[in-house]
Computed example of a mutant assay.
Amino acid sequence: MVKFEEMTFENIMELMLNSVSDELDKREGSLIWNALSPAASQVALLYTWLENAIDLVFYDTAPDEYLERAAAPYGVLRKQAAPAVRLIKGMDDNRNVIEIPTGSRFFIETENVYFKVIPSTNTQQLVECEVAGIVGNSAFSKDTILSLDNIYGLAQVEITDIVIPGSDIEELEAFRSRFFAKIQKDAFSGNKAHYKIWAEEVSGVGKAKIYPLGYGDGTVKIVITDAELQPASDILVQKVSNYINPISQIGEGTAPIGAKVFVESAVWKTIEISGQLSLKEGKSVNDVIEEITPDINKLFKSITFPENEVTSVKLAVISNIIFSAPSVLDNFNIKLNGEAANIILGENEVPKLGAFSFALI
């Protein structure tokens, strides 16, 4: 069996020259060598292309476009970048709330992006970023919001809470995992894995946990986070519910006929951290907090809704993060929510970093 990596120019030339009579001059630079050399170069290039082509068509190595094309016939589509949807509030000179016409546009100077007011089903008004992706999730002050329309009575605008986070195109390996779950028959006929796939393929959803018989016979409880692995908004919860089971038990969505589906948001579990620190010269508690906050937030995201295991915030891991901070010499008596113990998260809970309380020694 030919190994593609062995089909180099040198090896191909050797094979070709071996088929020529030894009575002829085959040395490098000879007429025969010069005649065979261009062909050997092109054949070596073809073997390189062939090796790459095989990687393109096998699911475990296929890159972006090719995996998308392979998954499409199975009904598995890659989640595209989605725009952020946020709350907007318009006020007059007396700070009375006024209605902003649907379609009104606003420009955010600091992010160089536009938002447009979209229809809303409740009293709070919504805007959608005109650019898909996480850029619409950025924090910005009311002073950087410019109205592009003449709106009667509008004196001040605030774009506040994120209702549905903007998200970039689904990461390739996450998409590959969803695809494998489908074709390897882990998900079929409305089983637990199938509900997980349905929930997580909705744009704006990060992770989902499935609880069969969550509220009795014939029921399925689905708990979701948003794309930022934070509790989902009511609008996103309704979006998932409409996709899976818009009318209970009728089978109009992806769920089988007869299923009663309950979609819920994850809820925060605030984790407060306290303890005693010995710091390097010239360092402060604020330095430590600034250093450890990104690592703790990264840890919390990594333990959000893991597969088939109880989630806990481990005291030893938090203590190690603090000890490893550049400003810290040593740490003592680290506690989580006042206890020197791990915190077991409830089935709907995701961890959120709360206040720090450090004393110096």
Rank of each mutant, 00 (worst) to 15 (best):
F4D: 14
M7C: 13
F9M: 11
F9Y: 14
E10F: 13
E23G: 03
I32H: 02
A35V: 09
L45M: 10
L46F: 09
E51V: 07
A53E: 13
V57N: 11
T61D: 12
A62E: 05
P63T: 10
D64C: 07
A72V: 08
L77K: 12
M91L: 13
D93Q: 13
N96S: 07
I98N: 02
I98W: 04
I98V: 10
I108N: 10
E109L: 12
T110P: 02
E111F: 06
V113I: 13
F115K: 02
T121F: 03
N122S: 04
L126I: 00
L146H: 09
Y152P: 01
E158N: 09
I159E: 03
G166W: 00
E173S: 11
E173H: 04
A174V: 09
F175T: 01
F180L: 13
I183C: 10
S189Y: 14
G190K: 02
I197D: 08
E200H: 02
E200D: 14
D217V: 14
E228V: 01
S233Q: 13
V240P: 01
S248A: 12
E252D: 07
W268T: 11
K269F: 01
T270G: 06
E272P: 02
K283D: 09
V288P: 03
E291R: 02
I292Y: 01
P294N: 11
K301W: 05
P306Y: 01
N308Y: 11
T311N: 06
L315K: 01
A325S: 15
A325T: 09
V328K: 03
K335H: 15
L345T: 06
N348G: 15
L353F: 06
G354W: 01
G354D: 15
